[in-house]
Nucleic acid binder design. Structure first.
Lengths: 271, 271
DNA sequence: CAAATAGTGTCTCTAAGACAATATCAC
DNA sequence: GTGATATTGTCTTAGAGACACTATTTG
């Protein structure tokens, strides 16, 4: 009878066939672009970080940042590391969105991807500043559903526009999966990963614990509302939004002045 | 300049270090045990399938059914296959609950696990019948939280009782993770996987699309309610439950008779 | 003052919870 | 009738949405 110690000493995992494992990260930010009138509040836009592929396969196309899992780290640590390598910002929030493991999803071979969503604040991006190398850019995101359950994903940065069409498939447990019908300019199955990530982000934003990570430590309730509206792609009446987040925020005694209208009180997140 | 074709032909994934990948499945069933009085409705119990480990490591302890990902299948297909091999039932519903990838989680080496929840109906188990080999059993599940955020997991089958204590850690996006404080009789990190699976199941059961898979095609509203109550570990007033599920079910014209009380109408799931 | 946003009060409507009452069987 | 479950009606309440109104700044 073999002991556990003997068993483990003679055990060799490398005898068995196994896949390569990567993580891909959908890092989201909300950008605020100034308006023509000095009085108006900035316009917000949900943005997603994409990286231009320098090598094969899908050379020249845009992809989610990501990379191979290294020995000694968890999948989550891998996702954090990859995001930081690309943005020089360590994201605060990260959440798994699914495992993509179709055998033919990567032409290089058997590679399964663990997809994550992460949230980066505009503030931290501006501070740490990405090299303005044009191989990593924050693309504006549009993601809409028509009545037949078809989704259109559009990502734009300057003159570059990436498009994808997807159909939703209702799976069990009330979950939805996305199948790519058309994909233009996006590498691998990343259009489907992005669709799943956006869906997960919107779902998560329903509870008001998620949205704070898009903003600096102190923020106005209106900017918080704009974040929520931008993510969910809806508009909310201010009175109702304020009532709903009131349990999640704390007043400070600071105000934002100098915008040609009533100053707004700064709030912070309630612990 | 190398072409994509040349690149792919010379590309060798096996040069790189990579983990073994498994899936572990928390397959749940709801058993109905008859009462002493012929009038009373059966008592329900949430049950989880566990397999006694025949070999090292953790020989003799109980573990979730699972196994290595094979080339050519998706992670989800692997989970379905493993469940079917163990129960001889192909589950209808399956849902990912997370990836467990701590480097030291398996003494055999670098093995990451994709955890799934699946639902098996009691009916299908009774039909296909598991071999009553005592190496695979449906354990009754208790999972409770105290005020300090500590969870106690107890799994029992006959004289065998497995216990674990876990603490919850709130991570971002309003998600919770479980850390094992104590684990008795359960292999690997499976106590944490089971805790995550139960949490995911309870969360999913909040929308009334999940619970039907525990029952045969035709069911009474009371049995549906018992399923919901058993999973969520709460009690619901019948009037309210009926109102809430009314949009998800359709009447049939069949009744269940012969139980010493008013016959119950059979319903089916609305498409 | 005009333009613009900040902030509050309150009405309505709906869905969930509580409670009460009635209906229908097998023995 | 008795014990048990099945089924329905309705009151109450909490929360979300709609709307109207007031407050405060800068050019």
């Amino acid at each position: 009878m073999e002991s556990e110690k003997e068993f483990l000493e003679s055990y060799d995992l490398s005898k068995y066939d196994r896949p390569s494992v990567t993580t891909d990260v959908a890092a989201f930010m909300i950008s605020s672009d100034d308006q023509e009138s000095y009085r108006k509040n900035p316009e917000n836009r949900l943005r997603l970080l994409l990286v231009k592929r320098g090598g094969h396969p899908f050379k020249g196309m845009w992809a989610l940042p990501g990379g191979f899992l290294q020995r000694g780290e968890t999948v989550e640590q891998c996702a954090l590391r990859e995001t930081q390598e690309e943005t020089s910002v360590l994201p605060v929030s990260i959440m798994p969105v699914g495992v993509f493991s179709a055998p033919d999803r990567d032409p290089r071979g058997w590679i399964i991807s663990n997809a994550y969503v992460s949230i980066i604040s505009e503030e931290s991006v501006k501070q740490k500043g990405m090299d303005d190398a044009d191989d990593a850019q924050w693309f504006g995101v549009s993601f809409d559903r028509d009545d037949a359950g078809n989704y259109r994903l559009t990502l734009d940065y300057g003159d570059t526009e990436l498009r994808a069409l997807l159909t939703e498939e209702k799976t069990c447990f009330g979950r939805t999966m996305f199948r790519i019908t058309e994909s233009e300019g996006l590498a691998f199955d990343h259009a489907a990963i992005i669709a799943a990530a956006l869906t997960a982000l919107r779902e998560a934003a329903k509870n008001y614990d998620t949205i704070f990570d898009f903003l600096p430590e102190r923020f106005t309730l209106t900017s918080l509302q704009k974040v929520q509206e931008t993510i969910m792609n809806v508009s909310i009446l201010p009175a109702n939004f304020r009532r709903m987040v009131s349990g999640y925020v704390e007043e400070t005694d600071e105000y934002v002045r100098g915008h040609g209208h009533r100053p707004a009180k700064l709030y912070k997140r309630k612990k």
